[in-house]
Design a binder for these strands. Structure first.
Lengths: 197, 197
DNA sequence: TGACAAAATGACATCCGTGTCATATCATGC
DNA sequence: GCATGATATGACACGGATGTCATTTTGTCA
């Protein structure tokens, strides 16, 4: 027996919970978030949330799934319009810089906490799919540059991984305040050189 | 009243605890380690350990302090003997590669879990001192290369930070098995190029 | 050997977050 | 408006880790 309105009601409520949870994860990272925090944020009852999610982990994974979908599509859009490579790249880099600055207040922090707090085997699939998506996007940008003749022909996949590694590494460094604005600029300049060479 | 033998006895016991704890942190990372694990490993009693350390955090910081001292001195040694730059660098890189491979079984994993599990402000000083030490060593290696004319003159400090960022980034990536041996080799080759350019 | 302080023990009270469940409320179809 | 199933509620029992403390053991000096 199909009951479409019931299905819908459920989805709507789930979305509400997800939005609230996302705010919480942005604010507190992953580890510090207890079920109660999410409950408080979305104004459901303790027992009620378990109808939708069995654990904080489940909520988190759903949040990440959603975010991932969003992020990828935004990158792909500018690649499709075939804007000048350096413009696309610099936009992307600017976005990354901004993320590094407000590190505390973003999902990336939660992501790091998550992957470092679980046994490797457990985060394996999750981690891989996140990375595959991200790498795809970065590769797309680089291939755009290649086609415009401003990125050296070479192993674009390796270059994409290198790119991601540098940004992840800087993210880790950004945890201290080791990274001043000037340092960050210098670092991205070095990264730019690797690509342009 | 000076009681040197008591002081000594205390230090000895502390060292025993530290060694046991280090094994535990290597095996289980940071987050999964409970006081009881350390207690079990070093065969002291629940109440007894609190005479020496007030919390897991305190034990961990002491372990890291010790490890840091060791690591630095080993790097500095090969710099002091002024071996050929590429030899020193490749030795260092080989060591890093090895660490990435046995990621699960090393203090680095614990370190990441630690800095990602505490509020930024709390790990700030710790993080900075670790980084300053590491950067000092890497800079020393790079200056060796500079003096031997195989590293481009330029901002060695920035280059050192970049170097560290790449390795940290690869460490993060290594959490999945995104990094095959070939990938890792290619990545370090790219890094080598940045330095040699 | 006895006396005294330092060190060690492990049972215990406590805290904190979790997931459940009996009960109540709500929405829909009849 | 009533019956029925889906949702919601919050008190509660449970588990796991923590740090304490009364008591015991150990080691040192006179």
């Amino acid at each position: 027996m199909a009951r479409p309105h019931i299905e819908r009601r459920r989805k709507d409520k789930q979305k509400k919970i997800l939005e609230a949870a996302r705010r919480v994860f942005c604010r507190k990272g992953f580890l510090a978030v207890k079920m109660q925090d999410i409950i408080d944020e979305c104004g459901i009852s303790r027992g009620g949330i378990y109808i939708y999610y069995a654990s904080v982990d489940e909520v988190f994974l759903d949040v990440m799934r959603q975010r991932n979908a969003e992020g990828i599509s935004s990158i792909n859009k500018s690649v499709e319009t075939r804007e000048p490579f350096w413009h696309v790249l610099d936009t992307y880099i600017a976005k990354q810089k901004e993320r590094l600055v407000r590190f505390e207040n973003s999902l990336f922090r939660a992501y790091c906490e998550y992957i470092f707090s679980k046994p490797m085997a457990a985060v394996h699939a999750f981690r891989d799919s996140q990375l595959a998506n991200l790498r795809g996007s970065v590769e797309a940008i680089l291939r755009l540059g290649e086609s415009q003749g401003v990125v050296a022909n070479g192993d674009i996949t390796q270059l994409a991984i290198f790119f991601i590694a540098v940004i992840d590494g800087l993210s880790v460094l950004a945890l201290g305040d080791a990274l001043t604005q000037e340092t960050m600029d210098a670092q991205f300049e070095l990264l730019r050189n690797v690509i342009a060479q």
